[in-house]
Design a protein around this nucleic acid. Structure first.
Lengths: 357, 357
DNA sequence: TACTAGCACTCACATATTTAGAGTGCTAAT
DNA sequence: ATTAGCACTCTAAATATGTGAGTGCTAGTA
């Protein structure tokens, strides 16, 4: 037999690797050379397959749980697999319908969309669903209103252009009259419109100086308001649902000690939020294409047994947050990537819709 | 030896049962007659203890996992134990301090208090923490304000006397002027103050009839507002945190199939919310005394492996919600009861504080 | 009558021992 | 370049064996 083109050989190896990982994801059992020979349709005997598997193992794509077991993917293997999964899986019609209807029914404000989205993702994926809200401080303000609650109390309500709403109570040292509050509202809204919180903090402070010469208490209140606003604006919120889905299959988690570590990951949203925040910041504006972080790729050992599928969502073309799912490494990447990017698309659209109107 | 007073005998039996259950909770191992004889200080030999244990088993308080094992409590046993635990355990000083500081630092609105509380309960108890919010429809209104967002959008913000805040967006068919919105705000607030949502729905509708003759669109808006308000007001919200704590110890959960059922419980907040809602409704006004539901006592088979420790919280003397923890049956009831009733007390106090000011 | 010592018995659990077979790596043949 | 064939390794399941924990019961004692 004459020598084969090396490119053909390489291509075959890739197909093999694909097939192995795909089967492993479906069956959760190590894949043996014989199965491949019989089912993969490569037209090679198990012995030849074994040779190829050996090579793939040496190259770090596969590994054996023990000497006489089939192969399972390494992180590098999964990575290869994911990078070559170009054809995203079509979502089942019913799932698609469900997703659409979820958003069609109630295009409420952003907060609702985000928390609903995280729940939705978790249900459809049977993994944990997560959504990182936009950072408040980067948001541009639409409206800041004080609502008098009687007595010395007022409620501050802040609405951003994206449709995020935050509210917090303020106890004053005096009982403001309705007209005072009105005046302050007008003053504030005249000056904050379209600015970010950071900007407001600076630009308004100067104006207050000036205004407070006229009306003493008004200045006090406004100053205080701004200070608390800053306090409040800090964290990007992480909506996380369905974490128990990850723990649902103890057999997936070899070591029971792993369990503990998984739980720690989940309970400490902080760390997760940071990983996600980094994604937002590093993300190019390009599209809703889902990205995948496999096991240790996040550099966080806590996540070494999990994979993250995430996509950013945008408002006015700008990336403002990220959403996705978190599950075991042995997940249906193709389907999850479809799901996540589809949802991110819808969320972006909903937000545009909201902020235009 | 002359015959013993039967009352003395009974008392001793109770003490024995207490001791057994207490030790089991601490050690998580079935309790043997010998251990009791040596450590419980009853001054009886293991043989005598065995006789007593037999009786207690016949009476349904204890059971054996298998023939030659020690005893563990039945639900009935736990019930007995809990009913006789009158002396609540003092919380550790540091925990107490932590709890206090948590509330001292930020007496924000009710929504915040509730979600923070559920997190707190979960952390301190190492179980799931839960808080059922008051039913919106029963709440009395303090304020209902429309905030114009520019264009045809307004944001409705509703504040109840208890300090619950809800907000939702409304898309109008026309762009309202600032003065129109002002007018409507005044109109609404004049008529809703102190009424419950249910009442408002009825009493205001009549007034709108009248008012809308004067200003057409105003009536439209108000009507729409009230309708959406009703939609919105339906569910009592359930804050649930730290559910993974329950799953943290797989060894506690004998059967891995149990795991699945546990997860289902947790994911379906609905069922849990109903159980809690019933507690609110059946609860007498009396005090913050913690109540305990052991295993199947809730009549819900999903909960048969868990116990619930809960206490109601009040506003102006009226029971408006419930909070507590959910964990395995083998929990430190005494400590949990202290914790829950203490927290319920603080929450009630915080709410009073808020609504007075 | 109230309690206890003592013993036979049961059963889970831990520890070997065996067996079966799954799957490999290598070699020799094509 | 590929494959048949075989020796080898290692797991997982099945079986055997021993040990000790803990009981129930009986007969005996204060």
């Amino acid at each position: 037999m004459r020598q084969l083109d090396p490119r053909v050989v390489e291509k075959r190896k890739r197909r093999l690797l694909q097939w192995v990982i795909h089967s492993y994801i479906k069956s959760s059992k190590p894949i043996a050379s014989q199965d491949i020979s019989e089912e993969a349709g490569l037209g090679l005997s198990s012995a030849s397959i074994r040779n190829l598997l050996k090579e793939l193992e040496d190259e770090g794509f596969l590994q054996q749980p023990h000497t006489s077991a089939g192969r399972i993917p390494t992180d590098k293997g999964y990575r290869f697999y994911v990078d070559y999964v170009t054809r995203l899986q079509r979502l089942a019609a019913e799932e698609k319908a469900r997703i659409e209807s979820e958003y069609a029914s109630r295009v409420a404000e952003m907060d609702n969309i985000l928390s609903q989205t995280s729940r939705l993702l978790s249900h459809v994926s049977h993994s944990a669903g997560l959504v990182l809200s936009p950072k408040m401080e980067k948001q541009h303000l639409k409206r800041l209103e004080l609502i008098p609650l009687g007595g010395k109390q007022v409620l501050a309500v802040l609405v951003t252009q994206a449709g995020l709403v935050r509210h917090w109570p303020i106890n004053l040292s005096f009982a403001p009259t309705a007209s005072r509050v009105n005046m302050l509202n007008r003053f504030l809204n005249d000056h904050i419109q379209g600015k970010s919180i950071q900007e407001v903090q600076q630009s308004v402070e100067a104006r207050i100086e000036q205004a407070s010469r006229e009306i003493q208490e008004l200045g006090d209140l406004a100053g205080r308001l701004l200070k608390e606003m800053a306090d409040f604006a800090q964290p990007a919120e992480l909506y996380l649902d369905g974490t128990t889905n990850i723990l649902a299959h103890p057999e997936e988690i070899g070591d029971p000690r792993e369990m503990q570590s998984l739980i720690r990951v989940i309970e400490e949203k902080q760390a997760l939020a940071e990983v996600l925040q980094r994604i937002v910041e590093e993300s190019p504006e390009k599209g809703p294409r889902a990205m995948v972080r496999i096991g240790g790729e996040t550099r966080r050992t806590e996540l070494k047994n999990l994979s993250l599928v995430a996509a950013t969502y945008r408002l006015n073309g700008e990336v403002i947050g990220v959403l996705g799912i978190l599950g075991t490494k042995r997940m249906e990447y193709s389907r999850m990537m479809s799901l996540v990017s589809h949802v991110s698309e819808i969320v972006s659209r909903s937000l545009e819709h909201w902020s235009e109107e």
